[in-house]
Design a protein around this nucleic acid. Structure first.
Length: 916
RNA sequence: GGGCGCGUAGCUCAGCGGGAGAGCACUUCGUUGACAUCGAAGGGGUCACUGGUUCAAUCCCAGUCGUGCCCACCA
């Protein structure tokens, strides 16, 4: 049954009360329905408070191919907390959602699908047909992850959902590319790139993962030209590249080889004459001190090759097989097969000096999974160094801040050493580069094909190529660059492209600059840095003022979750089992800044219990008819208990708010947890019970109203973290009086006056007394069922008035019959020492004197220890002279307190001894 | 090689200049009509080590040891 189906039933005054709330919370019956209500109610949509300030977050767009993993769950929970909090604060909130087309990943998914269905491969079906298939796939499966974000409770403005390849965003990409090209910040160049032979595309430096490999170092002898029997020994980890060698480098100061500089080697197996050059790159300490140079297949050799004008010989095909530039024998061989053959052939020639074991780092493509090949091709590059400058300054000048601040170092480190960004990919799925080539290789970069033809016509008309101009005017003669752009190129524009840029939309005007970017540190380089560059360049304003960097979610052993390790915890499984709120609250409570989240199901279970506790506290309120009273003023309550809880609510609000605003989500979570469980449930509800069953109708009514108010505040304060259960309880609590859903209710603002020092002191005293009595009883094995009398044997003047005033509470919770002054000496009693007095609880002969004595002695010893430490501190002239007065004073008071306690304990001991 | 972290209760972690904390686990007790997805009580820590700064150090500084991550082209 729906717990809120008939909220009005509850108000019938004389009808028997029917409980609306079931015994425990069933998230599966609530979450989907609540989410629908929110979404259909339009509460997620921005623009409804046009007079309010804005608060904007753009979601890190998940891959369309993806499904929700724990990292997403954490990332989006934190964003949702910020968003819901700010929405409740009355801001015009935009959480901009969307997905990323994820070039390589998506293309691979569809290719795999084709293979699995025994359908023609991508190249067989052709570009157009293949892209159609990808779009079809996107239409069918692209909504998975957004559905999963809904399950989590993410309150994104789905009416504005975007996709990096939709029309508007594609327009933005074209505009950016063309403009940067015309500004000289994008250029085409032939240089070495990281080539992934499995995917047959260039990839960026960031997509290369270095892996340690146990390999070998082979020492080859290269014969020196014209000097029979003289060899120059080179060492290599990649023998197969020797077929592309075009030189050997030695250090200019290396006396061993000085006489060879300027001469040539004859490259074995190939017979090519290659020069011996002097270059400081050659480290005399490494290998043999002489390095073979393969400028077309090694980044460093490439640089050396440029310096010494060495030949660049590309010896491989896109699949990393040897091409026609090598001797016939090796043509068509895979690079690793060739390695073996070449070593064998060198050995056969007697030119293999030795082989050493050698552990070294090998670059792997993170998608393709095979070693990348440095490969000489024509690619498009962005001048990242120029674009980075304003982006670096923005952080240096504090216009964008990293939280935790440390991450700015990581950002600087990378940005200040940034390399040209290879932005072209030899894929089909993505934004095709808007560049057209004329027959002579001339490049025309324009947003539209027609513009490219127009530009080409002008160009060739100037050159007088009438024939070509004629063809161009008929829309022929140009060839479009087949490559697409790196996926991150379009995500770099996300904070403004999603708002409508390049059109000057009102949303762009209103919601840019966005507020905070919430992300994991793993994409600071990929994404954050590039958004900063593009934002500065095209908007001339930082895309966000704060970057909140959260940690990674790991398994309970601290290992990174990965499919191959089989330690992945699926957030949806947890949501199914424990509810979205439990998962959200767990992630919130564990999200301490700068520390990885180690997740285990037992943690989720623990926080699920918290949700249950909250539910059952609400049920208590319901059973006791704690209905919100219109116009209730928390400052007006008269019962001390109520004054106290009202103040505690205000403290909790402060703690939770400051936790959220300072991005210390774990603090916000634990403050909420402690307040609800350890204050509201453990004490306030227990204090309320005697009032509810008492005779004072005014006090009863006030307590009901206060409890209802406090519960409502709890629901408000917890809503950003646990939206579903709070929304559900809120409707139940308010019933007909509910003006609007919790999601759009106002975050509470309290007067300072809600805190009452006197009430705080009294309740602290009551709690202390109850705790001490319980503790003594428990240690002395007094059964909970036994109700004892309490006799005040010391400090009656101080103790009795309070004991009188709060007698009902104390008696019930400490299991006492009565509290009275001791008329005569008490023997055979349990003694409880308070700050301002001593209680004796007579145990009618059953008290074990020895045990009681030991208990008191232990307390004396503890007090003595404290006294000694404080004495020593206060006896130190340096401390008295230099420590702040407040600290000195505080220590003096503590010493006095400890001494008083010790004295009372000693007297209690004396009484016990006398009775023995 | 460079950079960033972390070593606090059995476990996972907060705290970060003036009285060592939480959750879980553990022990004992408990069907008090909100809750056994619970309640009450309890045990458990020279806050990695060594120096230094300070009246005062778990907290700041230096070093050592251990451990994790990121970046890097070394044949």
């Amino acid at each position: 049954m729906s717990v809120s189906s008939k909220p009005n039933e509850r108000s019938g005054a004389n009808t028997p009360k029917t409980l609306m709330l079931e015994k425990s919370y069933k998230p599966e019956e609530v979450e989907t329905r609540r989410y629908q209500e929110w979404e259909e109610g339009g509460y997620f949509q921005c623009g409804k408070r046009s007079d309010a300030d804005t608060y904007t977050i753009v979601i890190p767009p998940p891959n369309v191919t993806g499904s929700l993993h724990m990292g997403h769950a954490l990332n989006n929970t934190l964003q949702d907390i910020l968003i819901r909090y700010q929405r409740m604060n009355g801001l015009d909130v935009l959480w901009q959602p969307g997905t990323d087309h994820a070039g390589i990943a998506t293309q691979m998914v569809v290719e795999r699908q084709l293979a699995a269905n025994n359908e023609p491969g991508r190249r067989d079906m052709g570009r157009e047909a293949f892209l159609e298939r990808v779009w079809q796939w996107k239409a069918e499966s692209g909504g998975t992850i957004t559905g999963q974000l809904r399950r989590l409770g993410a309150s994104c403005d789905w009416s504005r959902e975007r996709f990096t390849m939709d029309e508007g965003l594609s327009k933005a990409v074209l505009k950016v590319f063309v403009q940067l090209y015309k500004e000289g910040l994008i250029y085409r160049n032939k240089r070495l790139v990281n080539w992934d032979p499995a995917l047959e595309t260039a990839i960026s430096d960031l997509e290369v993962q270095q892996q340690e490999v146990n390999g070998n170092l082979w020492y080859f002898r290269y014969p020196v030209e014209g000097e029979e029997g003289t060899y120059l020994t080179v060492a290599t980890t990649r023998p197969e590249t020797m077929l592309g060698d075009s030189g050997v480098a030695v250090h200019p100061d290396d006396s061993r080889y000085a006489h060879l500089i300027g001469k040539n080697c004859i490259l074995p197996l190939v017979g090519r004459k290659i020069p011996i050059v002097a270059d400081e790159y050659a480290d005399p300490e490494q290998g043999s001190g002489a390095v073979k140079m393969t400028p077309a297949h090694d980044f460093y050799d490439f640089e050396v090759g440029l310096r010494h004008n060495l030949e660049m010989i590309n010896i491989m095909t896109p699949k990393a097989k040897l091409n026609d530039s090598v001797p016939e024998k090796y043509r068509g061989m895979d690079r690793f097969e060739a390695r073996k053959v070449i070593v064998a052939d060198i050995e056969a020639l007697g030119l293999l000096e030795k082989i050493e074991d050698h552990v070294h780092m090998v670059p792997f493509g993170d998608r393709g999974g095979v070693p990348v090949e440095p490969y000489l091709t024509d690619q498009w590059f962005a001048d990242a160094e120029t674009l980075a400058k304003p982006a670096i300054e923005a952080v240096e000048q504090g216009r964008t801040k990293f939280v935790p601040e440390n991450w700015s170092k990581t950002y600087y480190e990378w940005m200040r050493n940034i390399q040209p960004w290879c932005i072209s990919r030899q894929l089909w799925w993505g934004h095709q580069i808007p560049a057209w080539y004329g027959p002579d290789g001339e490049i025309f970069v324009e947003e539209a094909e027609s513009d490219a033809y127009a530009a080409a016509s002008r160009h060739y008309a100037e050159k007088g190529d009438v024939e070509l101009v004629k063809r161009l005017e008929q829309g022929e003669g140009l060839v479009r660059d087949p490559d697409v752009l790196d996926t991150w190129f379009s995500s770099a524009l996300w904070p403004f492209s999603t708002l409508g840029w390049p059109d000057k939309t009102s949303e762009l005007q209103r919601f840019y600059q966005t507020d905070v970017l919430v992300t994991g540190f793993d994409i600071i380089f990929f994404w954050v840095a590039r958004m900063m560059m593009m934002g500065m360049h095209f908007m001339e304003e930082e895309p966000f003022h704060t970057v909140y960097v959260h940690a990674l979610v790991r398994d309970e052993k601290g290992q990174k979750m990965s499919k191959s390790k089989g330690n992945v915890i699926d957030p949806l499984v947890l949501i199914d089992e424990y509810g979205a709120d439990s998962l959200r609250f767990t992630l919130t409570a564990l999200a301490a800044p700068g520390r990885d989240v180690k997740l285990s199901t037992s943690r989720v279970e623990g926080y699920r219990n918290f949700i249950t506790k909250l539910w059952s506290a609400a049920r208590f309120c319901e059973m006791n008819e704690c209905c919100p009273v219109a116009g209730f003023d928390p400052a007006s309550v008269e019962q001390t208990v109520n004054k106290w809880i009202v103040g505690e609510v205000a403290k909790a609000e402060e703690a939770i708010r400051s936790g959220i605003l300072s991005y210390r989500f774990n603090d916000a979570g634990s403050s909420a947890y402690q307040f609800v469980w350890n204050i509201f449930c453990d004490w306030y509800i227990e204090f309320a019970k005697p009032l509810f069953s008492g005779a004072d109708e005014a006090a009863k009514a006030e307590t009901r109203a206060t409890a209802a108010w406090a519960l409502e505040q709890i629901l408000l304060l917890l809503h950003p973290m646990v939206p579903f259960v709070t929304e559900e309880l809120h409707e139940n609590l308010l019933g007909n009086g509910r003006e609007k859903p919790l999601i759009v209710s106002d975050w509470p603002k309290y007067d300072q006056g809600l805190r009452n020092a006197e009430a705080d002191a009294d309740m602290a005293w009551v709690i202390r007394m109850i705790t001490e009595i319980r503790s003594a009883r428990s240690e002395m094995n007094v059964p909970p069922s036994a109700e004892l009398d309490a006799l005040v044997v010391e400090g009656a003047d101080a103790v009795l008035p309070r004991a009188e005033r709060y007698g009902d509470l104390i008696k019930r919770m400490a299991r006492l019959k009565d509290i009275t002054a001791a008329e005569e000496a008490v023997s055979g009693a349990l003694q409880v020492v308070l700050d301002d007095g001593v209680l004796a609880l007579p145990l009618a002969g059953v008290v074990d004197f020895a045990q009681e004595k030991a208990r008191l002695e232990k307390a004396v010893a503890k007090a003595d220890g404290e006294i000694m430490k404080l004495d020593k501190k206060l006896g130190n002239p340096g401390f008295l002279a230099k420590a702040p007065d407040a600290v000195v004073q505080e220590n003096k008071e503590r010493l006095a307190d400890e001494r008083a306690a010790r004295d009372k304990l000693t007297e209690a001991l004396a009484r016990i001894s006398a009775a023995m």
